[in-house]
């Protein structure tokens, strides 16, 4: 399955890259890990005149902790490098767990975290967890840079808030506070290699009294974009998270998702699974938060 011919551009500095992006505009596609882009090209979903390979750009592959304590993942860091990083395994273990559920080791060797987010696919695993963890992205362009919460990144079906000329440079994941827990649950009943029918992520932080003082929920596979379950969050905020309460609250997700029936399930089934796996994710995050204890201060 040969690709349609294109020009291949390999900028070695951000400035050069921005110049090429300006020159080629929408006729060029940015190439990072390429796992999603190549599939698009092969299926004829895109036929760009040029590919701009980002992999020769310096400084976009780091995995480190910033001065504010947040995890900083360079956009070109591959899933595999992130899941393998001792720093991630120790301090953001749910991130490593989630990444291990993405496709296969081979794809994770190639696919980058930045590419994953820019692809804007509502069925991918990383976005829900990054939503729940309140991650943000640093976006650079000729005119400077801006920080954008992941929560505002996804605008529509395969579309993001990135403007022409902007490049996603880094993903920032805040440090996990004491008495918090987070998890991503992937429901893919046909094969563990499959995309999720529904993916659900939860972040929960407890007050000393056991009440939930902070909670965010992210979902994959149930709307044109990855989404937060805000009504469910609101119903649980400040509450003691009992099983019946969580069950009742999870039902509220009904109004804020818009699943499409496809080969991974009907819309109705996805709604039911969204409720179920939100419920299970909250329970697991809660368990982890409780087990986490007061934590380091």
């Amino acid at each position: 399955m040969a690709l349609w011919p294109f020009d291949y551009l390999e900028p070695t500095s951000p400035e050069e890259c921005f110049a090429l992006m300006a020159e080629h505009g929408s006729e060029a596609k940015l190439l990072a890990g390429g796992t999603a882009l190549m599939q698009f090209l092969k299926q004829g979903l895109a036929r760009p005149r040029a590919l701009i390979n980002l992999k020769r750009l310096p400084g976009l592959g780091g995995i480190e902790v910033g001065p504010e304590g947040a995890l900083r993942l360079g956009a070109l860091a591959t899933h595999r490098r992130i899941e393998d990083a001792p720093l991630v395994r120790e301090r953001w273990p749910m991130l490593a767990e989630m990444l291990q559920l993405v496709a296969s080791p081979r794809i994770r060797n190639m696919a980058t975290i930045g590419g994953n987010l820019c692809h804007g696919d509502a069925n991918e695993d990383p976005p829900p967890l990054l939503l729940a963890l309140d991650a943000s992205v640093r976006v650079i362009s000729r005119v400077g840079e801006r920080l954008l919460p992941v929560d505002g990144l996804f605008t529509d079906f395969y579309e993001t808030a990135l403007k022409p000329g902007e490049l996603l440079a880094e993903v920032r994941v805040p440090p996990l506070p004491p008495r918090s827990g987070a998890v991503y649950l992937k429901f893919a009943p046909k094969s563990r290699q499959d995309f999720a029918t529904v993916g659900a992520a939860a972040f929960v932080r407890l007050a000393d009294a056991g009440r939930c003082v902070e909670l965010r929920l992210g979902l994959a596979g149930v709307a044109p974009t990855p989404v937060r379950a805000r009504k469910v969050e609101a119903a649980l905020q400040g509450q003691l998270l009992s099983e019946p309460l969580v069950r009742e609250a999870a039902a509220l997700v009904e109004d804020e998702i818009d699943p499409v029936g496809d080969i991974r399930g009907s819309a109705g089934y996805k709604r039911e699974m969204a409720k179920l796996f939100l419920r299970r994710a909250v329970a697991e995050a809660l368990r982890r938060a409780g087990a986490a204890g007061p934590g380091p201060t």
Binding site: Q39, K190, S191, R192, Q193, D194, F195, D262, I263
Partner: peptide, 23 residues
């Protein structure tokens, strides 16, 4: 193999899943 109006909806190994080693 799923069809809609005679069109195959899952004509690839991503959407038509055979069992993998883990499954």
């Amino acid at each position: 193999i799923r069809n809609e109006e005679g069109r195959v909806l899952n004509p690839n190994f991503s959407d038509y899943r055979i069992m993998a080693c883990e499954d």
